[in-house]
Design a protein around this nucleic acid. Structure first.
Lengths: 113, 113
DNA sequence: TTGACATATACCGATATCGGAATATGATAG
DNA sequence: CTATCATATTCCGATATCGGTATATGTCAA
């Protein structure tokens, strides 16, 4: 077996710095491919490929506008990721010294239920 | 050039399903490697290697306990990721029909500043 | 239809990945 | 010291990745 496919997985899609940058850029509104490529300092095919990945995981949608193809943000797919990470919020809010104590409370509560 | 290193990058570290599962398991408290390997249904070296990645990005710390080595969660590194994704919150909260309108408001505000 | 422009795809090379098997390191008990 | 248990590291094969270059597809204008 080898590495998991980057496509069809939002976690992997946003693991790429350039793709994260694309998402940030698209918060300001729709943009054509060549403009994104220029802002990323990469060649057009590179941008197209990243956009393909983002499209396949649903983080981006595209729309034709004349010769150009405008890409726009569809952030809904980020919500589950945000929630998954949010499941760790109390762990980074608790100070480290108190973590063990906290975990023990958790385990104690589980045992007595 | 090739793929970015998975180590020293929290986004990549959590892009791996098995590593995410490890983090979830560690919310219940510290665990030795072999126990994690068993719960993941993978061999011990596999678990060790994932734990190494997680340790190198700082999401996990380890502590010796006799022959065993206990791994514990250190979720602080997840906070920046949570915040980065949080920067898209209004985009998934806005309904899609109203998104264009919203973006136009943004651009208009920018122009008039 | 032809040409110009915008984007997508195919192919390539260098490298990173993941899991498995074998082996090395480390700690403890006797 | 030695044997045993727990974990880490190394090596391997199959595959995926990323960026670049060349080429294909698609759209519009004349």
């Amino acid at each position: 077996m080898a590495r998991a496919a980057t496509t069809s997985d939002v976690f992997n899609a946003i693991a790429e710095p350039q793709r994260r940058e694309i998402l940030v850029l698209l918060r300001a509104g729709e943009r054509p491919v060549s403009e994104l490529a220029q802002e990323l300092g990469m060649a057009q095919p590179g941008a197209s490929k990243h956009l393909r990945v983002l499209r396949e995981v649903g983080l981006v949608r595209d729309r034709r506008a004349g010769k150009q193809r405008l890409y726009g943000l569809d952030a809904r797919g980020l919500r589950p990721v945000h929630e998954w990470i949010g499941g760790f919020e109390r762990f980074w809010n608790e100070s480290f010294d108190r973590l063990d104590e906290y975990v023990q409370d958790l385990e104690q509560a589980r045992r007595s239920s």
